[in-house]
Nucleic acid binder design. Sequence first.
DNA 1: TTGTAAGCGTTATCAA
DNA 2: TTGATAACGCTTACAA
Lengths: 369, 369
Amino acid sequence: MISSSLGTPANPAEEKSGAQPQPQPRRSTLADVARHAGVTTMTVSRFLRTPEQVAPLTAQRVEVSLKHTGYVANKQAGILATGHSSMVAAIIPNIAHSIFSETIQGLSDTLEAQGFELLLASSDYSLEREQKQIRALLGWNPFALVVTGRHHTPDSIRLLLAAQSAGTLVVEMWDQTGSRPEFAHIGFDHTAAGALMARHLIAQGYTRLVYVDSGVAEDFRAHERGVGFVQAAAAQQGIKAQVVRAGASEPIAAGRAVLQKLLGAGSGKAKKPLPQALAFANDHLAVGAWLQAQDLRISVPEQIALLGFGDFPITGQISGGISTIAAPRFAIGQAVGRWIARQKKGAPWADGVTASPLLEPVLVQRRTT
Amino acid sequence: MISSSLGTPANPAEEKSGAQPQPQPRRSTLADVARHAGVTTMTVSRFLRTPEQVAPLTAQRVEVSLKHTGYVANKQAGILATGHSSMVAAIIPNIAHSIFSETIQGLSDTLEAQGFELLLASSDYSLEREQKQIRALLGWNPFALVVTGRHHTPDSIRLLLAAQSAGTLVVEMWDQTGSRPEFAHIGFDHTAAGALMARHLIAQGYTRLVYVDSGVAEDFRAHERGVGFVQAAAAQQGIKAQVVRAGASEPIAAGRAVLQKLLGAGSGKAKKPLPQALAFANDHLAVGAWLQAQDLRISVPEQIALLGFGDFPITGQISGGISTIAAPRFAIGQAVGRWIARQKKGAPWADGVTASPLLEPVLVQRRTT
DNA sequence: TTGTAAGCGTTATCAA
DNA sequence: TTGATAACGCTTACAA
């Protein structure tokens, strides 16, 4: 139900035409406050920023006028004058994915505590959209621009480099860039995470492995985990690993479908041997497969082992728990926020060379592997 | 792993002291472009906004200079000069809750398509924090400010009213305000949604009902659904309804705990009759209770019926499906975005009086009721 | 078709 | 301790 029948019309053009020529109330400015207090704008500005430099009596008058006028400082004017912005812009692939929403929550919490504000855009896993958004967000002159991952269009990279050399902090998050990073990055190595998955399954004695990749074409990190998975498996004698791709639909449903399909391929005439263990690009896929296995009365992990990625709450709550890789979703956001705050306080740019064990993915073994 | 060892230092103070006094590159401005093109800033500005008013030859030169300088328009300056902002600010209780992250996704998608940008804050379900955030966000002079729900501190309301009368659109979302709304609102009536839950359970023949409220103290909408639930039950002969409160922990775990506790209360000496049906403040709680019932081999809905709220994807995927109320999480965000876009195009402020059936919660009966 | 001048609301700087 | 003035980067309004 949408409704907005009453209240003050926001648009003066909507006022009854016969009404008094009551001027549209403006937002009050420093000048309004100053006039009311009988001082100049500078005195009010000073009171706001360095009250100790204002005489106590004046301060009182200004304070009253501030309240009276309901003054709210205009940030655009402030930023224009100082050149310093308290805004941080972030681009993530998808806000609704719990993986990124938690990162944003971590980022937002940390930044807010430090007096920053968050301008958010979601690229819907499209590098094209990301490029447009980088351009649009840079127009705000943000203190920092946070992007997800290290895959960008060439033009995006040009924009980011230019912004960085003009003083904007640029951070790539969720990913671990190679040996010669152009930008600061806070995340982990997804190839290594994929290898971790494979090694765990192998250690448990499974030999026929499948990595179920994300159905999202531009989910580069999931693809990289698949690469790491296959490489790690290939490094071992007697291990067979393949990659299949989940559907692009809702991930739990896609996970159900993948299990169904893999089982189907193992029956019929050209009977291939069934895989013994499945590693998934994310926990939602794993949950879907687990639900499907339940429905089919397939015992997990005896008949098939399942390993998720992400450690979403549900994996810990399902009976016995689904084994998974705990990805530092929230911690990455926090770390980015803290790093940005540290830079503002003038920490040297390169002080982030420390490794943080908090951001390393960790295997959480539960009942499904 | 955090690392940022290489790349261009962002802070000129970090440059090797012996280096050439290479000036920190600034972001290029209109003036830079104009100089390069041999015209004035106005010509460049015109080219950017009304290219048809610029002579073709001049336009070419300007275009080249634009590329050459890597110009990105400064939004603060633009907004200050025009007084029109393309920014929309939104405050939600929690970004990580799938309920709100989907609303934000809907809002963000719609706004972006219309050329708006989204400034986001999360209040962590605190009215105090919300008040601070309203103040902070209004400083950006947003085109519109979107808040969640209709519960705000008196000071918040004052700020919102002042902003509204100064021309900022104010929208309350997720809630259906009473008969005399101060602000536009896009959402639904949570008391009615609670009543819908009760009536459904009663229609299925259950007589001993429990509403499991959210453990979050300031989740007013969940509380209101509880009120509606109890009222609707009280209006029927022979129906007993009570409200219990879930724990404040992770909601799936809290849902498990609630079921456990309710069953415990029904055993032992002072044996109370067990409830026949449980309605939950959200689907995660319901999923938790369902998982717990599975573990205890309690048959659902025969021994106990479960009804969720939200229609999160998981409820449709669990075997047979969990009955729930489909809340228009994504649609609310879209509707808000569309409403804002319509206002920009000069639609009369009160054109939103239409009811939208898309935003009404709908009961989805599956296997658990 | 292009340019000049003034101003948006704030802060830095210097003077009183 | 306070004030005058000149920016910040852009757009509006008007002039050429």
